[in-house]
Amino acid sequence: MTELRSIFTDEFVNLLTKISKEGIENASKGFAGMLGKELTVKSSTAKLVKLLDIPKMLGGPEDETVAIYLKTEGGIAGQMMLVMPCEKAFGLVDMIMGEPIGTTTVLGKMEKSALQELGNITGTYFLNYVSDNTGRSVRPTPPAVMVDMCAAILDIVIATAGIENEEVLMLDAEFVQGDLCTEIQFWVIPDPQTILAYGAK
């Protein structure tokens, strides 16, 4: 995996950060546009963290966690996952659906669907950028929204890519709607192949 390390240069991380931030901002603007309510996003910090450290940072390996997962097919095959603690997901759904914070307490079909669309718009924005810059077409699968223990969810990425020692990008985004704000962490875990394809352009 040494090839991966050399591609995760500062320059590349900055680029990944930039397009991930734009992806989230883009997605949220879209919801505001559709709701007719002002919803702004301030993306504050971005840093590289080890995949295996994620459970500790989210609370614990058994903590109830929501993940929005999608695979990519076409010129670049890989996977992406947005991960957040369950409570944060509730707050995010409230904002997307224009409800007062605290309304959502369970992720039913509609709530998961809203998260699915957030994942779709955010993830696809990222892929569009990669595609336009590599000249390769890349299409996502419909996102899957999962709710389970943090460690179990991370198994998906770890087992498939065999990359438990690798680092991923963590973004801190603050969603603001009127007087309310909620802070969410987004983990962008592009598959090594996606990164390698980008690096090979």
Partner: peptide, 26 residues
Amino acid sequence: VGVGLGEIAVSQNCEEILVAFGLGSC
């Protein structure tokens, strides 16, 4: 005693509980 990915724990200590948290596909 947490047993992480790829780890093994063996114990004879009666006060210990060996735990593998959040086994998904593992």
